[in-house]
Amino acid sequence: MIDSLLQILSSTLRVSTPLLFAALGGLMSERSGVINIALEGLMLVGAFTGAIVAYSFHSPWLGWGAAAISGVLLAAIYAASVINWKADQIVAGTAINMLALGMVPFISKILYGVTGTSPTIPADERFIFAPIILVWVFLLIIHFWLGRTPSGLWVRFAGEHPKALDAAGIGVKKVRWGAVLMGGALAALGGATLSTMLSSAYARNMTAGRGFMALAALIFGKWRPIPTAMACLLFGFTEALQIRLQGVVLWGTEPVPVQFIQILPYLVTVLVLAGLVGHSRPPKALGLFFEKD
């Protein structure tokens, strides 16, 4: 009993790590007032870059660094279009997701002649558990930074009351740029965790909707770091439980059909978003373009 509890616990921590990275990335961006539905694309690019750099240079840390840079670059395209060029944030975010979906196989084709997977990273050149610890360190840093430092306050004001921030003489666009770029790096690290720790290579579309799960966790967590992390843990836990419950006989003699068990994480998502969270208020200026008067 204790054994299986420990196993589910460790499984939960593993599964929720990429989600939490991406959710923190989303949090950075959205607290500054920029909607980020591009998390999925950012993760995918991070997963790919992390895998190929870790493979080529025999170091998961280098892979991680490169993934963060790739996330910053992709986020820069997004930031420029929504912060400077007035693009609609939902449309531009979708475009970034599609760009990632198409660009990754294209680059992979040029590098390796195949579109679906990258070469396998040997076991001793992969992460064992470092990202799991780091993500919680990042969480605490972001929690304190947002709440206790002047620059954290700027980010919050950019999302709640950009005019006040502007009146205080701080450039709203600069703050948003910084937040979106950092968010891109974090989301990409989540993707790289998938390819350099939770598996051993990049596989086509391996993010499999995790970027959107992270977004749901962010809303569930009311855009606050600690509750968002709890939401990620909950999603990770239902996922781990789902695996554990498959094929288990709960009543009668026949196991519950696997499809019913598999909808568990989605069911939980819908339930918590629909009822249990209560009112979740987004940052006031979320999604609004800011122009100096």
């Binding site: 499984s11 593993r14 599964v15 990429p18 998938l194 939770l198 598996s199 051993s200 290579a201 596989a203 086509r204 579309n205 391996m206 499999a208 996922e239 781990a240 695996i243």
Partner: peptide, 8 residues
């Protein structure tokens, strides 16, 4: 196409 989940 979901190796991380299959590994878990």
């Amino acid at each position: 196409n979901n190796p991380p989940k299959a590994k878990e």
